[in-house]
Simulated assay, not measured.
Amino acid sequence: MVRGFGEQRLRPHIAEWFETGQVPVRDLAVEIGKLGLLGMHLTGYGCGGSTATAYGLVCQELEAVDSGLRSLVSVQGSLAMFAIHRWGSEDQRRQWLPGMAAGELIGCFGLTEPDFGSNPGGMRTTARRDGSDWVLNGSKMWITNASVADVAIVWAREQDTERNSIVGFAVPTSTPGFSAREMTHKMSLRASVTSEFSLDDVRLPEEARLPEARGLAGPLSCLSEARFGIVFGAVGAARDCLETALDYVGTREVFDKPLAGYQLTQAKIADMAVELAKAQLLALHLGRLKDDGRIRAEQVSVGKLNNVREALQIARQCRTLLGANGITLEYPVLRHANNLESVLTYEGTSEVHQLVIGEALTGVSAFR
């Protein structure tokens, strides 16, 4: 179903959305919501309650069209909705999740700051108690959908307390003092709305705080959910590149025979097919571990590190097979490659995941 939706509704427009940097997020969210894909792996409140593996395969089919479209679904479901579902109050779940599952309300996830990406513990956004209210000040950057969102999940450092802990809030974007601006001039993820937002004495009632979240475990658990979708999504992008290249080399003639008939071409194709198959098997293995409740954070890091790295290499190699045609939007390979440069960085850079895996193997943290 999702593959058909991607081919019929999304693919005919994706080159234009990418080229113009304009994507109809709100219209697409409602359409995707009607398919039951937003927060589909969560239970209750209008969510589908699917398996993790099914959710992963949906991410794979969406990213086969474009990483930005998968980002729309994973930021909504695995970051914003998951944060409310896992760490929010019952009232917050009832207030936000049904509308978000339907795509009628858009969420964003505010963790990264201008000076703090890989080290979220250094964040400068603050939450200060003022009577029974909270007052938030700070800024967030590289936030998907912030400028079109109805609710922002905001992580801040609790101020004027001994704990100095990280706390989370569900912030209606209509709250006075909240402002967001779309970030433009991107060379990657152009079919996705990327924004920065500011909090200038944003006053919130206690009811806006995510009551179960305390410390970095809150935002990091959300990131692990989003990374899981990327493990599958990257496979979709790589598959689309390889299928495009296979079709091209079978019809493109070089020195009076198809490009597919040369040993160097077949060597490239064979190596890419092997890596794609390994990435697919790794994603399915992790999906089944997650469905069994046995997955660990470092295993998700293995999947994200390997699959995005290999997908990017496949996209680049496919571009070489398409020659000059590979740089046009008539074919998807360079668009995928450009997008994967961002996917390689967000939800944890390759270096961060290497250190997560290294700590799991050695028992020694090398982050500091």
Results as ranks from 00 to 15, higher is better:
residue 149 A to N: 10
residue 130 D to F: 05
residue 73 V to S: 06
residue 101 A to Q: 13
residue 89 S to F: 03
residue 100 M to C: 12
residue 55 Y to W: 08
residue 141 M to C: 02
residue 95 Q to S: 09
residue 144 T to P: 05
residue 54 A to Q: 13
residue 151 V to E: 08
residue 136 L to P: 14
residue 96 W to S: 07
residue 149 A to E: 13
residue 89 S to G: 07
residue 133 D to C: 10
residue 62 L to Y: 01
residue 117 G to R: 03
residue 104 E to K: 11
residue 76 Q to F: 07
residue 106 I to R: 05
residue 49 G to K: 13
residue 126 T to G: 05
residue 144 T to L: 03
residue 85 H to M: 10
residue 104 E to Q: 13
residue 122 G to F: 00
residue 92 Q to V: 02
residue 114 P to V: 01
residue 66 D to E: 06
residue 67 S to T: 03
residue 99 G to D: 15
residue 48 G to L: 04
residue 109 F to G: 01
residue 126 T to D: 05
residue 80 A to I: 11
residue 144 T to M: 05
residue 100 M to E: 09
residue 145 N to A: 11
residue 112 T to K: 01
residue 129 R to H: 00
residue 50 S to P: 03
residue 87 W to Y: 13
residue 82 F to W: 14
residue 150 D to H: 15
residue 68 G to H: 08
residue 126 T to I: 09
residue 53 T to Y: 09
residue 82 F to G: 04
residue 133 D to F: 06
residue 80 A to L: 09
residue 55 Y to L: 06
residue 86 R to A: 14
residue 76 Q to R: 05
residue 64 A to S: 15
residue 96 W to Y: 15
residue 111 L to I: 15
residue 144 T to A: 14
residue 151 V to A: 08
residue 84 I to A: 05
residue 147 S to D: 10
residue 67 S to I: 01
residue 88 G to E: 11
residue 122 G to M: 02
residue 87 W to D: 11
residue 128 R to D: 07
residue 109 F to C: 06
residue 145 N to G: 04
residue 69 L to E: 05
residue 54 A to R: 07
residue 90 E to R: 15
residue 107 G to I: 10
residue 92 Q to I: 02
residue 80 A to Q: 11
residue 91 D to R: 13
residue 150 D to E: 12
residue 127 A to R: 00
residue 92 Q to G: 04
residue 75 V to W: 07
residue 59 C to G: 09
residue 124 R to G: 12
residue 120 P to H: 00
residue 121 G to Q: 03
residue 62 L to S: 06
residue 91 D to I: 01
residue 138 G to I: 12
residue 106 I to W: 04
residue 56 G to F: 07
residue 140 K to H: 13
residue 115 D to N: 07
residue 79 L to M: 15
residue 139 S to K: 07
residue 107 G to L: 10
residue 142 W to V: 07
residue 100 M to A: 10
residue 94 R to A: 14
residue 106 I to A: 08
residue 85 H to Q: 15
residue 103 G to D: 10
residue 90 E to N: 09
residue 151 V to K: 11
residue 76 Q to L: 09
residue 120 P to L: 00
residue 131 G to L: 05
residue 107 G to H: 05
residue 123 M to E: 04
residue 97 L to S: 12
residue 60 Q to E: 13
residue 63 E to I: 00
residue 64 A to V: 02
residue 61 E to H: 01
residue 84 I to R: 05
residue 125 T to R: 04
residue 146 A to T: 12
residue 128 R to G: 00
residue 142 W to L: 10
residue 95 Q to P: 00
residue 89 S to K: 08
residue 46 G to T: 14
residue 100 M to L: 12
residue 102 A to E: 15
residue 67 S to V: 02
residue 98 P to D: 02
residue 62 L to K: 08
residue 126 T to K: 11
residue 146 A to V: 10
residue 87 W to M: 04
residue 146 A to K: 08
residue 49 G to N: 14
residue 80 A to K: 04
residue 108 C to V: 08
residue 124 R to K: 13
residue 118 S to V: 07
residue 91 D to C: 01
residue 102 A to P: 08
residue 84 I to Q: 06
residue 74 S to Y: 08
residue 79 L to W: 06
residue 132 S to V: 14
residue 93 R to P: 06
residue 81 M to D: 10
residue 107 G to Q: 09
residue 47 C to M: 14
residue 126 T to C: 04
residue 109 F to V: 10
